[in-house]
């Protein structure tokens, strides 16, 4: 049975349990020769095949327009919002299910696959309500459950100590870095399996960036994270594996340290060392 079909709750939740040292990590996302076109004709992703594993941070890098954000947005079917956009080849499996299967409930998928955007976008509501929002629309009304989820999510996002005395204050009144961490708290409140981050620090100052990066490192204990970044140093600091994209193709994907010290493809070497892009 699909892990992300309507009515199925946490069938693969066991993945969050601690794995013994040296145990093989479980496969969370798999793409098999995925091609994608915004207009339904011209492929902007070309036969992408990759595997993303649990409790790892995977970074997508590449020059603007190479397709990294497009692929990321396919993982929770955000591209469905564009009428002409479609997968033209291959398939994407998340937690063992083909996410483009007609039986898949997209709302359930997006609960499992949360997303944090480049520009922090808290709702014009209180800090508390921002975090509680996802739970409320999922039908959770019990105050004690929501209270606990809000506190846990703010703790996990490293924001609790900074806001615990003003949970009723507007989320819009926080600093940029705090607003982004509030958005991360909002994302994790519904307990996704995967968090997609599309350049989450590009609008933040260096200290706020460091806090978010530190948070990413802590969150990978509980979630699988895929991050799109233009910042090479950020990719080297936070990710376990890095995928380099160019002109819609996946050129190389490898252990981050290996990719940044000894890439196998010349395009990768030229891009990461600043010779094009």
């Amino acid at each position: 049975m699909s892990a992300i079909s309507a009515g199925t709750e946490k069938t693969v939740g066991s993945q969050k349990t601690e794995k013994p040292e040296g145990a093989k990590k479980s496969l969370v996302i798999e793409t098999n020769e995925v091609s994608f076109a915004y207009d339904g004709k011209k492929d902007v992703l070309k036969k992408i095949s990759m595997q993303i594993f649990a409790q790892e941070v995977t970074a997508f890098i590449g020059p603007s327009g190479c397709g990294k954000s497009t692929l990321l947005r396919n993982f929770n079917r955000m591209n469905d919002l564009i009428p002409t956009a479609k997968i033209t080849n291959g398939h994407i499996s998340i937690l063992g299910s083909d996410i483009f299967d007609p039986m898949v409930d997209v709302i359930e998928l997006r609960k499992k696959v949360g997303m944090v955007f480049q520009k922090y976008n808290p709702f014009p509501k209180s800090i508390y309500e921002n975090v509680a929002y996802g739970l409320r629309i999922a039908g959770e009304n019990r105050k004690s459950v929501i209270d606990q989820a809000v506190e846990e999510s703010l703790q996990l996002s490293g924001l609790w100590e900074e806001v615990k005395d003003r949970l009723d204050a507007s989320g819009m009144g926080l600093s940029g870095g705090q607003q982004q961490r509030l958005c991360i708290a909002r994302t994790i409140a519904v307990r996704p399996e995967i968090i997609l981050m599309d350049e989450p620090c590009s609008a933040l100052d260096p200290i706020s960036t460091a806090k978010v990066e530190d948070l990413i490192t802590q969150l990978k204990e509980k979630f699988t994270i895929v991050i799109v970044t233009h910042n090479m140093q950020q990719a080297t600091r936070v990710s376990d594996r890095t995928a380099f994209f160019y002109l819609g193709s996946l050129i190389e994907m490898d252990d981050t340290t290996k990719l940044f010290t000894n890439p196998t493809q010349k395009e990768t070497e030229d891009y990461i060392s600043g010779r094009f892009g």
Binding site: M232, Q233, F260, T261, P263, I272
Partner: peptide, 10 residues
């Protein structure tokens, strides 16, 4: 100044 990587770093 440049945070070199790959062959440059080596």
């Amino acid at each position: 100044r440049f945070s070199p990587v790959a062959a440059d770093l080596r």
